[in-house]
Design a protein around this nucleic acid. Structure first.
Lengths: 207, 207, 207, 207
DNA sequence: GATGAATGAGCTTTCATTCAT
DNA sequence: CATGAATGAAAGCTCATTCAT
């Protein structure tokens, strides 16, 4: 006796289950790749290593990703998306009700948060992984969006808000990156430096 | 009047010619490798590509370099040496007779000069080429030397000269790198940004 | 009546088939290498030649062997294992119930058997292939084991059984090797020589 | 004023000097190759290494030797010639006035002398260096000559002198080789074994 | 003749990708 | 869909040999 459900309604849950399983496989592959990237660097990232670490066959990897670059792209896309999430947070800040100092602090704090998440992966991405033109463009776009948001917040609080915003964003990004991501032996404690950075940018924006 | 050459001095030109040929071959190889690195990035740098671009055989490459890494090391060493030359210049500045503003200007100016030389190569080196631990150490050392020199110059002109120097050096380096080396579409002209950078650091150091 | 197979046992043949395929590939590679070694000597043994002769891709060779030496090692290990099998046979002989003549005959006969199996390969291995220290040690150990076994058999039948055993083993090995493995034009028939060898050793052991 | 000697008489010494110099260069190259062979084995024997060790240019090596094999051939030829010298010595023994024991002793003693000269080189030659067909033939010929000489000496002292001679020569050669050349840890002292060898062969020849 | 820089065929090895099962 | 054995282009590197000086 055939089930009463139509073919369509029968298949939906199945398809969902399949999609869920597929999604899980994709996830496990991407996470394996990211962990390898953080652990062994760019040279250690081979497709077979990813498959093994993910606990799936190399064939399955190619079932879900057209090629190696596609896996890397997902990692990079998420990396960029993380930045975008932070930027979205900046957009929610109430324009007009913040002092210049608050804005600087929010910006610096945001970059610290971003860089503190998996700094090893962050470092490998920024110092070994070659970005495609498209990815470079997205990073640029992200940065420009951040600048324009900070610029909008600064409006009325400083002259040349766009230029000031560029400086604030670039400086905050570059220095938090250096202190948190680079394993360089920073001669002065990172916390001290962060305070200095905030002080410097406050002075600059207010000056 | 021609110099009287002994039998020994007669042979010298031959030896010199040989040395010159060898040196020229080394040079041509390193330059080819650097050009490939700048043009095609890390992935494009194969030993055969280097040999071809240099116009020598692959055998000649290995006549002068133990392995591929040795070629890269020469490029990196020269890259680092360039920075060291600049640092040596900083050391010649008359401690005591410069204002804080002069010091900031000299530092920023120095990093601009460094980054303007072959920015494409500079970018590939900083974003794709994996450094050996030794090379990382040299880069760190270079940074620390720069900081201590600037710190010495700032002595008596500001409180916490060491922290201030760290900020000045790191900020100047990071931002000139971003504007000059990164091909990112900087929304504001680099020159404007440089002026801003100098202004910001002046304010910070004097503040 | 077919066996009732559970889902698990259903998959077994597949796994077995895979293992069989893998094992067959390993085998085909080792055999190809051994044949090349016998035919073309040490110089002819290149990994590509092995792959081609085995009818597999070079990639498959490296799927199963870490490097070229690993292939050679398997050949050498099997070669040595053959000797070990013969030695194990000697250990089974009933100590005490054999005459000195029987012991000599068994020893000579054993070495003849060993050397008659693929004499060409045997020759290349002993005259061209460099052994690792470990392999040299195993060969030594093998010889010493043979000597101690023969020594035990000779106990009570001759004075200085250990010295006698050394002579019997070394002489039997060296001369059967010469007659069978060396392609030297032996001026007297190998069979005659074998008889002489046995006679000589008998006389020596009994004398 | 021209020298009174004719062109011919003038040139002879020069040519001789040249030949002497040439001969010295050949010598220095062959010795360097032999030393490398003994020290580093077959793998270490590269033409550039030979040139360097000989203190001449690689160009000069190819001035005197058509190719690498030609150098090896000289080493092998000398190696074989050494054996031939010993054989020539055997030929000088007074046929008829020696006991079988004397003959055995002379033969064993001869092989000991041969193998004691540069055993390392001897070992490399016999276990790593591939011989050409021609060289194999010469080695065979040498062995056969030794056998026929010993056979002639044994004539009238034993039945089947040719077979006996084959045994004596092959056994003496193989065992002295094993004890002296092989670095194998021989469990019994070489001197003891030599005595045993002589005793065994005496018994055999006289038996 | 002597030199040694230069050559390049050919070797070992890696790893992204395919496809029969 | 999953599997993983198989593929082979391409990379790094060696070394016998040549040839301009």
């Amino acid at each position: 006796m055939p089930p009463r459900q139509t073919a369509k309604t029968v298949r939906k849950p199945v398809r969902r289950a399949r999609q869920a399983r597929s999604q899980a496989t994709v996830e496990v592959i991407v996470e394996a790749a990211a962990r390898i990237l953080a652990d062994k660097g760019w040279r250690g990232l081979t497709t077979n290593a990813v498959a093994q670490r993910a606990g799936v066959s190399i064939g399955s990897v190619y079932e879900y990703f057209a090629n190696k670059q596609a896996i890397i792209d997902v990692i990079l896309d998420r990396h960029i998306a993380q930045g975008e999430t932070y930027i979205a947070g900046l957009a929610d800040l109430p324009a007009g009700s913040l002092t210049a100092g608050d804005i600087v602090e929010a910006t610096v704090g945001g970059f610290i948060i971003i860089h503190r998440d998996n700094p090893k992966l962050h470092r490998v991405i920024s110092s070994e992984v070659p970005l495609s033109e498209n990815q470079k463009a997205r990073v640029d776009q992200l940065r420009n969006r951040a600048i324009s948001l900070v610029s909008r917040l600064l409006e009325g609080q400083t002259n040349d808000p766009n230029v000031k915003a560029s400086m604030v964003v670039d400086t905050a990004e570059a220095l938090t990156h250096r202190w948190i991501v680079d394993e360089a032996g920073v001669p002065v404690a990172a916390e001290t430096m962060t305070n200095e950075l905030t002080a410097m940018l406050r002075l600059y924006v207010s000056g």
